[in-house]
Computed example of a mutant assay.
Amino acid sequence: MKKAFKFVLNTIPRPLLIRLSYVVRPIMTIALKGDTYTDPIDGKGFKSFLPYGYGTQRNNVLSPSTLSLERHRLLWLYLKNETDFFTTAKKVLHFAPEQAFYKRFRALKHLDYTTTDLLSPLADVKADICNLPFKDNSFDVILCNHVLEHIPDDTKAMQELYRILKPGGMGILQIPQDLSREVTFEDDTITDKKERAKIFGQYDHVRVYGRDYFNKLRSIGFKVEEVDYTATLSNSEIEKYCLAKGEIIPVVYK
């Protein structure tokens, strides 16, 4: 199964993967039903989660029911327990909307919810993150998770995100991050897809962010909170929800 998943992830375009998942997901949800692990997004239990990864494959991380990964489940718990996202009227912009969230956020009647991306079939607005078609100070909340590592000019993208966020607004700007690295790593001379997947975690990533990511956001103008939400959870909760202990949620404000 591990080799099959890796082959599928590395050969099938993401828009097609999204469509195929609607067929495969119900089958896997039934096949892996159990009580060892729980997806907090829908509350369903499983005897195991699925493997996932482009470069190095990680075991037991992909929820069969919501297709959430560690970062999605962590973000859900943070938004649910520590913010008023699920209770207060907000104008929300969601980049590259994840399936784990898309229908659930769309169903929240108190949200004015807009999705955007260049390629995703789930996007309401097809747009370039470096040249967004939105007015200044437009959104109360911006969700932009695992997008910036794909963008060559991430400085321009961050400036656009800052521009369209309302004063007092909140953004969640998650990225794949190597916290042991002080400085972000980029190397455009590496062109082989397999080598890029090995080094950058995915063939279409243009950098590996280090701890300097937070200060780069601050240099744009954001107030940044480096939230280690797993530090507030017990080890049993981290294991039950299959979270990555120590993962930082970059929460920004304008």
Rank of each mutant, 00 (worst) to 15 (best):
G168L: 07
G168K: 05
G168P: 08
G169S: 04
G169K: 08
G169Y: 05
M170C: 08
M170N: 08
G171L: 02
L173P: 09
L173H: 08
Q174H: 10
Q174Y: 09
Q174C: 15
I175N: 07
I175P: 05
P176D: 05
P176L: 04
Q177K: 12
D178K: 08
D178S: 12
D178H: 10
L179P: 06
L179C: 13
L179T: 14
S180Q: 13
S180I: 06
E182D: 15
V183K: 13
T184I: 02
T184H: 03
F185H: 09
F185T: 04
F185S: 05
E186M: 09
E186D: 03
D187R: 10
D187Q: 06
D188C: 14
T189Y: 01
T189F: 01
T189D: 00
I190L: 07
I190G: 00
T191R: 06
T191A: 00
D192R: 01
D192C: 00
D192K: 01
D192N: 11
K193C: 06
K193Y: 11
K193D: 13
K194C: 09
E195I: 10
E195H: 12
R196N: 00
A197T: 02
A197H: 04
A197D: 10
K198S: 14
I199R: 09
G201S: 04
G201Y: 03
G201I: 04
G201K: 03
Q202P: 00
